[in-house]
Design a protein around this nucleic acid. Structure first.
Length: 882
RNA sequence: GGGCCUAUAGCUCAGUUGGUUAGAGCGUCGCGUUUACACCGCGGAUGUCGGGGGUUCGAGUCCCUCUGGGCCCA
C-alpha cells in the first residue's frame, strides 16, 4: 500500500483574523444557509483555481462528468460528496485545488432524451430547417408519432436541451456545496472537446493504434449501431433447445440449438475433438434440413460436450463463439440477418435447391422472433424437428442500454488497440494498474479482471447522429465506390471538423459523393473515446501546455466501481498511449447506493426522491454527513435516518459554538494556549490533539469516513461531558478563580477553532456559518488544524481525565435518573466509588464534578470498581418552574 | 466456471499491527421543560461477533472449510 502522505505545502499555525466582537445570533438555524453561503462563495470566487501555482502545490481532480441529459440521482450526491471532502481537505492543507466540472452531453442518452422530450426523430434525408420549432417540449403525448427532423436540426435540439439540463445540475451541485471551480467547466460535445477528441484520434491513427476492418460486429437492432465489449451485459433469458436432424451419409446427425432461425446461415457443425460420439463424422459433410446446404463436420475444443447434444451448428453469426469458430476454422459467411434485425431478402448463395429457396422466401422480412417460429414450422413439416423444444434459461448478450438481444453482423468499423489482441499492451496496462493507488485497494482486481478478459480491440465507431464525428473522408473511385484503405485526414489545425459539411484539402464541395470525389465518414466516435480524455479536456491539452503541465497527471480520479471497465480503463488506455503515463496517481472508488432491500437503487423502481428535494428537506450538510459516513468502495444503504443524525450534528455545532462564543461578551475571543491551566481543560485539548492527528492521517489515506467518525465522536463527548463539566466555571461562578474561568474559556475557544476546521469538509455550511460569527474570511480557505497548538496548550495534560470525569459525571446523573428527579436536584453530599487508581485523576476535576453534579456539600471518593457508582443523599427536588 | 467484497445489538455501521468484561448512533423503554441546544438533555436494556474446524498463552481480528448476501468477469 502506498501511504506516502503528501507533504503539506503550508504548515503554519492558524492565524486567520478574529473579529473584535463575535456576532452570535440568538437562535442559530440551518435554514437558508445553502443559498446564502453558496451565493457568497460564488461571488468571492472562493474555489477558483490559481493556474500559476507550481505543480507540487496543485491537487488536481479528474471529476466524473455526469450525463447531462439524464437526471441527477442520489448516487451522484453520494460520490460527489466524497470528492468534495477530499477537495476541501486539500485546499485547507494549502494545496491549490483544481476541481473542474464536466457535463457528459455527448452521445446516445442525449439523443434518447431529445427524442422523448421534443417528440422528434432523425431522418438523414431531410434538409436543415433554419426556423424549426419542435412539436413539443417535455409534454409529448403518448400517441404522438415522432416528427422527422434533419440531422442538423436534431443536433441543435441536443445542444439546446443539454444546456438547459446543465444549468439545473449546476444548481443542485452548488446547493450541495461542491467546491467546484465553475469557471473550469467543460462539455464533452463542445467544439473544444470535439477538437480534442478528434486530435487524439488522429494521433492514434498516426501511431497505428486506430485501424478499420470489416469484421463481425455486435449490433443493436433497435439503435442501429455497433456496440463494444465494454457496453455489453448478459441477461438471463428464456430459450429452448430445438433438436434438429441434419442428414449424413450414415444417417441423421442430431444437433440442439436455441436459435433454429439461423439454420439458413449454418456453415458447419462442430464437436469437441475428443468427443467419441462424433469421431467418425469429423471430415465428412452433412446436409442441412429444409435448406439442403451441405456443410462440413469439424472439430474444435470450444465445443462443449456437455451442452445440448455435444455437437453444434455454426452459423454466421449466432453468438461470439460462432465468430471464433468462423475465424479459426476459416468458414464462409452466410449472412441472413440484416441490420434492422430482419431476415434479408437475398438468400445466401449456398442455398440452391428450389425447396431451399422457397423455404427461405417464407422467412424474408421476418423479425428474428417470427423467423424462429416459421423455421420451426418448416422443420416440423419436413420431419426434422424431434420432440418438443426443451425450455432453458441462458445468458444472452444485450447492449446495456438496449432491450433486444444483440445480433452479430459483418460490418466495416474503426477499432483502437487496447490490449484485447496484444499481450504486450495488455501487460503494460496491467502494470499501469499496479502503479495506480486504488482506494480501496481491492478495486484493482476489478480492473485486472477486466483487462485479462478483453476479447478484442476497442470498437470506436458508432452509427449514430449526435456525437463527435470521425475527422475523416474517403476517396470515391471512378465507379463511385468508397476507397477505405487510404482515408483523407485533415491537419490538426483544421479541427474540429464535420466531414459531412467540411471538405478535405484538395477537393471542393461539389465533388462530395461523386465518382472521383470524396465522401465523409458518416459515423461518430464512441462516447468513451471522448470521455476517456477528460483529463485532457479539463486540462487544456495542446491548447495551453503550461496549464496542462500543472494539472497532469492528475492527483485523483474519483468514480464509482461500475465504470472501472469503461471510463477508468479507457482513460488509462489513452494516457498510456498519448503520454506514456498514468492519467492520475490515485483512484478513489465510491460504492453504490442500495435501497433498503439491498438492491441497487434505480430509476425504474419509481423512487421519486430527487436530490434537490432531499437536500432541501434535510439540509445539504445533513445529506453530506450521510454520504461522508460511508467509506470508499462500500455500497451504502439509502438511509434518511442517517441524514437526520447529520442534521442534529450540524445544529449541535451551531448551538455549542454559540455557547462557547457567548463567554466573550463584548471582548475579542482569544486563542491563547498559555491561558489553559486547569487539568480537565488540558485533558480535553490533549484528546483533541490525537483527534487531529488521526483525522489528518485518515484524510491523507482517502478515508474521509474515519476522519468524520473520530471527529464526531470527540465532538459529542465534548458536548455531553466536557461542556457540562466546565459550564459553571466558564460562566464565572464564584466557586472558581478567575484564572480557572479563563482556562475553561480559552480551552473552549481553542477547541472550537479546531473543530470547525475538522468538520468543514463534511459540513461546509454550518462550519462556515459559525466561522463567520467570529472570524474573518472563509473557513474553507483556512488552514487545516495541526495538533501543535493543542499540545502546547495541553502541556502534560492527561487525556484520560476526560473519560474518568465523564463516567463520574454519568454516575451522579444516574442516581438522579433512577430517583426520577430532575438533573437540577442537588446532592446534600456524595461519595464517588471508583478504583483507587483513578482517585488522583478525579481529585483533579473534583470542583468541576461538584458543580456539574450539583453537589451542595462534600463530594468525596471511596473505593469501588470501574463501574463508577455513587453513594449520596439527594435534597428535595427544586420546585418546578412555571 | 474464474475472481472480488461481505456477514458484529431490532436497524445502519465502527472495531488499527491478534491482547482483559465487544463499541457507537438510530430505534426501543424510563426519566427530565437545567439560561448552548425540544430539530433537546439524562439514564436503562439489548450480542453464541453466520456455522464448523485449525494456529496461538490468547481470535470478532490470522488460516481452512461450509452457508447466506452482493458484485465483476466468462
Amino acid at each position: 500500500m502506498n501511504h506516502a502522505a503528501t507533504t503539506p505545502p503550508s504548515q503554519n499555525p492558524p492565524t486567520e483574523p478574529i473579529r473584535p466582537v463575535a456576532q452570535v445570533p440568538d437562535r442559530p438555524s440551518l435554514d437558508g444557509l445553502e443559498d446564502r453561503w453558496s451565493a457568497s462563495w460564488g461571488e468571492q470566487d472562493l474555489y477558483a483555481f490559481d493556474a500559476t501555482a507550481p505543480r507540487e502545490r496543485v491537487f488536481s481532480i479528474d471529476t466524473p462528468p455526469p450525463t447531462a441529459s439524464g437526471s441527477l440521482h442520489i448516487g451522484h450526491v453520494f460520490s460527489y460528496t466524497h470528492t468534495d471532502c477530499m477537495a476541501r481537505y486539500r485546499r485547507m492543507r494549502g494545496h491549490e485545488v483544481f476541481y473542474p466540472m464536466g457535463w457528459d452531453d455527448n452521445g446516445l442518452p442525449t439523443e434518447r432524451r431529445v427524442q422523448n422530450y421534443y417528440g422528434v426523430q432523425v431522418d438523414t434525408s431531410l434538409p436543415f430547417e433554419a426556423d424549426f420549432t419542435p412539436p413539443y417540449a417535455g409534454d409529448v403525448p403518448k400517441k404522438h408519432r415522432p416528427t422527422p427532423v434533419s440531422r442538423q436540426n436534431f443536433v441543435q435540439l441536443c445542444l439546446t436541451l443539454a444546456a438547459e439540463d446543465e444549468k439545473s445540475f449546476e444548481q443542485v451541485f452548488r446547493y450541495l456545496g461542491l467546491s467546484v471551480d465553475w469557471a473550469q467547466t467543460y462539455q464533452t460535445i463542445s467544439p473544444t472537446s470535439q477538437q480534442t477528441s478528434q486530435r487524439a484520434f488522429l494521433r492514434q491513427l498516426a501511431r497505428g493504434e486506430a485501424y478499420q476492418i470489416e469484421a463481425p460486429t455486435l449490433w443493436d437492432v433497435t439503435f442501429q449501431t455497433a456496440v463494444a465489449q465494454a457496453e455489453l451485459e448478459d441477461r438471463e433469458r428464456d430459450g429452448a433447445y430445438h433438436r434438429i436432424s441434419f442428414h449424413g451419409a450414415e444417417g441423421p446427425v442430431f444437433i440442439e440449438t436455441t436459435r433454429p432461425e439461423l439454420l439458413a446461415a449454418c456453415v458447419a457443425l462442430v464437436a469437441h475433438p475428443d468427443d467419441e460420439r462424433y469421431q467418425g463424422l469429423f471430415g465428412s459433410t452433412v446436409t442441412s434440413p429444409v435448406f439442403g446446404v451441405e456443410v462440413p463436420v469439424l472439430a474444435h475444443p470450444l465445443a462443449d460436450p456437455e451442452k445440448g447434444a455435444g455437437i453444434a451448428m455454426i452459423c454466421t453469426f449466432g453468438d461470439t463463439t460462432d465468430v471464433t469458430w468462423w475465424r479459426e476454422l476459416n468458414l464462409p459467411t452466410r449472412t441472413i440477418i440484416g441490420r434492422d434485425g430482419r431476415i434479408l431478402p437475398e438468400a445466401p448463395a449456398a442455398i440452391t435447391s428450389a425447396e431451399g429457396l422457397a423455404a427461405y422466401q417464407q422467412l424474408v422480412g421476418l423479425t428474428v422472433f417470427s423467423a424462429q417460429k416459421q423455421t420451426v414450422e418448416l422443420l416440423q413439416a419436413s420431419g426434422d424437428l424431434h420432440g418438443e423444444p426443451r425450455k432453458i434459461t441462458h445468458p444472452v448478450k444485450f447492449y446495456e442500454k438496449g432491450d433486444k438481444p444483440l445480433e452479430i453482423v459483418s460490418s466495416r468499423q474503426w477499432y483502437a488497440r487496447n490490449g484485447g489482441r496484444d499481450a504486450d499492451l495488455r501487460e503494460q496496462l496491467i502494470q499501469r494498474g499496479r502503479e495506480l493507488t486504488w482506494h480501496p485497494e481491492f478495486m484493482r482486481s476489478r480492473y485486472e479482471n477486466w483487462v485479462d478478459g478483453l476479447a478484442g480491440d476497442w470498437l470506436l465507431s458508432r452509427q449514430r447522429f449526435f456525437g463527435v464525428p470521425f475527422p475523416l473522408w474517403y476517396r470515391l473511385d471512378e465507379a463511385g465506390e468508397v476507397v477505405y484503405d487510404d482515408p483523407l485526414v485533415p491537419s490538426e489545425d483544421r479541427l474540429p471538423i464535420d466531414p459531412s459539411t467540411d471538405v478535405p484539402d484538395g477537393y471542393t464541395e461539389d465533388q462530395r459523393g461523386k465518382p472521383g470525389g470524396f465522401a465523409g465518414d458518416p459515423d461518430v466516435l464512441d462516447t468513451w473515446a471522448t470521455s476517456s480524455l477528460t483529463p485532457q479536456l479539463a486540462g487544456r491539452w495542446e491548447r495551453d501546455p503550461d496549464f496542462f503541465s500543472r494539472v497532469f497527471p492528475y492527483d485523483v480520479r474519483p468514480q464509482a466501481h461500475d465504470i472501472i471497465r469503461t471510463w477508468l480503463f479507457s482513460t488509462m488506455v489513452r494516457a498510456n498511449a498519448e503520454h506514456d503515463s498514468l492519467p492520475w496517481r490515485h483512484a478513489a472508488i465510491s460504492g453504490w447506493i442500495l435501497d433498503p432491500d439491498r438492491k441497487k437503487m434505480s430509476k425504474s423502481k419509481g423512487n421519486v426522491v430527487t436530490p434537490l428535494g432531499l437536500l432541501q428537506q434535510h439540509g445539504s450538510d445533513a445529506v453530506r454527513y450521510w454520504a461522508a459516513s460511508a467509506r470508499l468502495g462500500g455500497d451504502t444503504a439509502f438511509d434518511e435516518g442517517q441524514m437526520k443524525i447529520g442534521r442534529r450534528l450540524a445544529i449541535k455545532l451551531l448551538n455549542a459554538s454559540k455557547f462557547a462564543l457567548s463567554f466573550a461578551g463584548d471582548e475579542q475571543v482569544t486563542l491563547d494556549p498559555a491561558a489553559v491551566t486547569e487539568p480537565l481543560d488540558r485533558a480535553i485539548l490533549a484528546q483533541l490533539a490525537t483527534v487531529v492527528d488521526t483525522a489528518t492521517r485518515a484524510y491523507e489515506n482517502y478515508d474521509h469516513a474515519r476522519a468524520l467518525e473520530v471527529t464526531e465522536s470527540f465532538f459529542w463527548t465534548f458536548c455531553d461531558d466536557y461542556l457540562e463539566l466546565v459550564k459553571d466555571r466558564a460562566y464565572g461562578s464564584e466557586k472558581f478563580t478567575a484564572e480557572a474561568t479563563d482556562s475553561a474559556r480559552a480551552a473552549l475557544w481553542l477547541a472550537l477553532d479546531v473543530l470547525l476546521r475538522l468538520l468543514a469538509p463534511v459540513l461546509p455550511f454550518a462550519t462556515e456559518e459559525v466561522w463567520s460569527w467570529w472570524r474573518e474570511g472563509s473557513v474553507h480557505r483556512a488552514a487545516w488544524p495541526t495538533s501543535q497548538v493543542l499540545h502546547t496548550a495541553a502541556g502534560d495534560g492527561d487525556p484520560s481525565l476526560v473519560s474518568v470525569a465523564g463516567s463520574a459525571l454519568a454516575a451522579l446523573r444516574k442516581v438522579k435518573s433512577e430517583a426520577k428527579v430532575s438533573q437540577r436536584t442537588e446532592f446534600a453530599s456524595a461519595t464517588l466509588l471508583l478504583p483507587e487508581a483513578d482517585h488522583e485523576a478525579v481529585r483533579a476535576v473534583l470542583a468541576d464534578l461538584r458543580a456539574a453534579g450539583r453537589v451542595a456539600g462534600d463530594l468525596t471518593l471511596g473505593n469501588g470498581t470501574d463501574d463508577v457508582t455513587v453513594d449520596g443523599e439527594l435534597l428535595p427536588p427544586p420546585p418546578k418552574n412555571r
